[in-house]
């Protein structure tokens, strides 16, 4: 059970290890037995709809919340037994940027650096480096009250970075951020990992998990229901998804027909214009659907097989579509 610091010994390879974690709030089982392993140097995406338990899990990992049951290790440290030691190795950027409006960007970062235990000089130097990296050097001397939402998020990230954490926990890092800033943040998160930090982030955005995460855990109602790489998850859906575009007046009938032919749940995209359904038998399913549509005199504007998206994964795993599917970004 002894853990040596420094170059970590190979007792375990995982940077984050969660086993059987339960956390309830009254009757709500926010975490209902979570098991999770995150290998070093990757981006792990925790994907789940609103209320799935993402924030609760992040709070447990970041020592802000004690679970009622289970074991939690971060960077080889038992978080429940020695939270202070764990805190020295983690960085947290919560769901809402926790930066002080009345301080300048630099003052915010220097303060956090001091609280990480850096000397005044080191904290200042680190702050300048991190601000440079995060693209806020020009604005560092301005009070945060004048920052945009995206800039605050970046500053929040910078503040967590100043302590050189081994693991970063990012709770919905791009929620409520415009597309340009989102791309920027994605790039920064990828940079982080390239520099050796392990990142565990949560997201409601399938596209985000797909694009960023090396591994994805799908969380629903306090349980990790599926785990793997984006590709593995997609393959688990059954290889292919059938997509049909029909005119609005034929929409209802086409939907029923697809469900009848495939026996699968049908989802909608683009406000109902586009219908999607898992095609377990690939082109055989396609042929069957084309024939059925023909028999019903429904003329499709477009029909074909596509690779499944995480949308489809989520549906097949949880039996329900993601609450706020899509994210407003042009794909």
């Amino acid at each position: 059970m002894t853990v040596t610091t420094g170059a970590s010994d190979a007792v375990t390879d995982a940077v984050v290890e969660v086993a059987g974690v339960v956390r309830t709030f009254g009757d709500v089982r926010a975490l209902d037995g979570v098991d999770l392993r995150v290998e070093p140097g990757i981006i792990y995406g925790l994907l789940g709809p609103n209320g799935a338990g993402k924030t609760t899990l992040i709070r447990v990992l970041a020592t802000l919340l004690r679970p009622q049951a289970g074991r939690v290790r971060v960077a080889g440290i038992d978080v429940l037994a020695d939270p202070t030691a764990a805190r020295a190795r983690i960085g947290l950027a919560g769901q809402f940027a926790a930066v002080d409006e009345f301080l300048t960007g630099r003052e915010n970062v220097v303060m956090v650096g001091r609280l990480y235990g850096l000397s005044r000089r080191d904290a200042r130097r680190r702050a300048d480096e991190v601000l440079e990296r995060i693209g806020l050097r020009q604005d560092a001397a301005r009070q945060v009250g004048t920052y945009s939402g995206g800039m605050r998020r970046r500053l929040d990230l910078a503040a967590s970075l100043v302590g050189q954490p081994e693991v970063m926990f990012l709770d919905e890092p791009t929620t409520g951020i415009d597309p340009r800033n989102r791309l920027e943040l994605w790039r920064m998160i990828e940079d982080l990992v390239a520099a050796g930090t392990t990142v565990l982030l949560t997201t409601q955005y399938l596209e985000e998990a797909d694009r960023l995460a090396d591994r994805i855990g799908v969380i629903d109602r306090g349980v990790i229901v599926q785990e793997g790489t984006a590709d593995a998850l997609k393959a688990a859906v059954g290889g292919a998804v059938l997509e049909v575009v029909v005119p609005p007046d034929a929409h209802g009938r086409a939907r029923e027909l697809l469900a009848a032919v495939t026996g699968e749940e049908v989802t909608e995209r683009d406000g109902g214009r586009r219908l999607r359904v898992a095609a377990r038998d690939g082109s055989r399913t396609l042929t069957e659907v084309v024939r059925a549509l023909d028999d019903a005199h429904i003329i499709s504007d477009d029909i074909g097989l596509t690779r499944p998206s995480l949308d489809d994964v989520f549906l097949s795993v949880t039996g329900q579509p993601v609450g706020e599917a899509g994210d407003g970004d042009a794909a």
Binding site: D13, D82, R89, L118, D122, E129, V130, E166
Partner: peptide, 21 residues
């Protein structure tokens, strides 16, 4: 696993403390 520093300047590789005194 050795973790490359975010910036490879040796002075800044000091670990933040994990104890309060």
């Amino acid at each position: 696993m050795t973790r490359p520093a975010i910036t490879p300047s040796p002075r800044q590789q000091r670990r933040p403390r994990g104890r309060t005194t």
